[in-house]
Design a binder for these strands. Structure first.
Lengths: 141, 141
DNA sequence: TGATACTTGACTATTTTAGTCGGGTTTATA
DNA sequence: TATAAACCCGACTAAAATAGTCAAGTATCA
């Protein structure tokens, strides 16, 4: 059970962006350098974030990215959703009529995994980008 | 972020085992058939469970496995630990003096991932095998 | 008009996962 | 005592996912 780097990087990059998000857009190059993430990889990630309208791009010289919403309104769920970081605990399809592993009934532990998924998603639902930025500046790390 | 089948199967198999755990040991063959898990794969999993003293083996004809502790005392944490299903949210080493990504400080989101890990582990810490068996028999699935 | 920075798709090496395979050893029971 | 059921254990592997890289653009500011 592990988080992929795509999801992790997306959040790291957005926290970085949110911190330096003044009037000027922040370039991926800067984020890349500060966070130690490959520029090419960041581009892929921001392409997805833009499509989901979490960030806006500013093209041209001195361009970069800006948040498209208030940091408070961007939840971890939105970010993970944008980069296809999904919480998957069961193999079985959610709404299929067949049970798990091709059996006619639900597998013994089906409810457990559902419960776990909800537990994790709750956490993501509650955390906003603003929370993360605050925590960081308070602690001055 | 997904659960591997090793962890999932381990829990499924143990719930099955706990349900049919009377005087006689339960054979992996039976579990394999009931749960639709490859026998060879089950053997690998039970080898690990035995090493961590979660189950006991009974060799020979009519042999199989029995729980080594009360179902109440076996938590999901113990099971996942046994089969090396780990919750990993950060790449960075836990107690290394260096920060994340080789930087001198912790990465911006380090605390977040720690928090998430704890959140998930709490869930696993609280659930026992007994809980799972109960839920199933009550609902009569 | 050049430099900077975003845009986009295609490609790929590495790692992990989810097993399989094969040859053991142990022991109850006929 | 033979035999078959069942555990024991290491080695191997196909397929999928991950974590990127590479290349070739396009837009816009100075």
């Amino acid at each position: 059970m592990k988080l992929t780097s795509k999801g992790r990087y997306a959040v790291m990059a957005l926290v970085d962006l949110a911190r330096f998000n003044s009037i000027n857009p922040v370039s991926l190059r800067d984020i890349s350098l500060r966070q130690g993430i490959s520029l090419d990889y960041l581009e892929q990630i921001f392409f997805k974030l833009r499509k989901k309208e979490i960030v806006q791009s500013v093209r041209g010289n001195q361009g970069g990215y800006v948040l498209n919403k208030k940091a408070k309104e961007i939840k971890l769920t939105n970010i993970f959703d944008a980069v296809d970081e999904k919480v998957k605990t069961v193999q079985c399809k959610k709404d299929s009529k067949k049970g798990c592993n091709g059996k006619s009934t639900k597998c013994l532990t089906h409810n457990l995994w559902d419960e776990l998924e909800n537990h994790i998603n709750d956490f993501f639902e509650k955390k906003s980008l603003e929370d993360l930025v605050k925590e960081n500046t308070e602690r001055r790390i």
